[in-house]
Nucleic acid binder design. Structure first.
Length: 279
DNA sequence: CGACTCTCCTGGGTGC
DNA sequence: TGCACCCAGGAGAGTC
């Protein structure tokens, strides 16, 4: 379940393989993977073949690759998207293969996605560098453009609960269900706290907690790379080792020992400590 | 426009 | 063992 740290790990992993690479072949194996490319698979391939990838970029959970044609190749991993380069270890499950790319130097890049929530598409680049289809996505915490004041102001203007606000990618991007629960646990805030009631000191603590969680996940994900076999699959290894609240129902809170509670939340789950995170 | 719900998808897990 | 479910989740469409 890739969130910001996992997508950044994917970007870093892909960068040395794709930056400067010229695309000479594109095969779309499943049309749903390019459903956001409205002109269809033939147009998708035609827009890419012959172009050179000039950079690797990311905002929140969106990835994009500027092309020397002036277009950009955009991608989102959704729930289960992954990129594999060359598959030299032969671990790729071809049943989930959605799009294949061949580069001029014969490097193969595969996009796989079991649940097909993710996808790829091509669109014209924009002068300010942000592709039009993600212009509404707010800066994320790794972005130098992120600033506390506008985020705090945007949050204050909303009449909702803090976790809903954290998951709203137009307020702050890159935060998903897992890291929202983890950051709220660290900052000792209940996920249903009204945004209007959050004090500035609490917001500072929450942002610091999100930065910590992201930094730890990035470190964990960054160590899972192998220079010879790049499987940038969005699994940071962070889940198994470091989660304090998410998925920890009935396990003792690492801070106070009280069993972690799971509650239904917009057709998914929220995990929190009922003693440390009081409404 | 803001707040919120619904929908898309697959396979691992669970209960009978 | 087999089968019918349930569940996980991001983001955008749709509703009010």
């Amino acid at each position: 379940m890739p969130e910001l740290p996992e997508v950044e790990v994917v970007r870093r992993g892909l960068d040395p393989w794709v930056r400067g690479a010229r695309i000479v072949g594109v095969t779309v194996h499943h049309p749903r993977a390019i459903r956001r490319h409205l002109a269809g698979a033939n147009d998708f391939a035609a827009a890419l073949v012959g172009t050179k990838i000039t950079d690797t970029r990311r905002r929140g959970k969106f990835l994009w690759f500027p092309l020397d044609s002036g277009d950009v190749l955009l991608g989102h991993l959704g729930m289960s998207g992954q990129f594999i380069v060359n598959d030299s270890a032969h671990t790729m499950n071809r049943a989930h293969l959605r799009v294949s790319f061949t580069f001029e130097d014969d490097t193969q890049l595969y996009f796989l996605d079991q649940r097909t929530f993710g996808g790829l598409w091509v669109e014209p680049g924009a002068a300010d560098g942000t592709p039009p289809s993600i212009a509404h996505i707010a800066p994320d915490l790794l972005d130098p453009a992120f600033a506390m004041a506008p985020f705090a102001a945007a949050l204050k203007g909303r009449r909702t609960e803090i976790k809903r606000a954290l998951l709203d990618q137009t307020l702050i991007s890159g935060v998903g269900n897992i890291y929202a629960d983890e950051a709220l646990w660290r900052a000792q805030l209940h996920y249903r706290r009204p945004t209007a009631s959050i004090q500035s000191s609490e917001l500072d603590a929450l942002v610091a907690a999100m930065r910590e969680v992201f930094a730890e996940a990035l470190t964990a994900g960054g160590t899972s790379f192998d220079a010879l076999y790049v499987n940038v699959n969005g699994n940071s290894g962070y889940f198994d080792r470091s989660l304090k609240a998410y998925g920890q129902k009935d396990r003792p809170c690492p801070r106070c020992g009280t069993p972690i509670v799971r509650e239904a939340f917009t057709n998914r789950s929220s995990f929190y400590c009922p003693r440390c995170q009081v409404l």
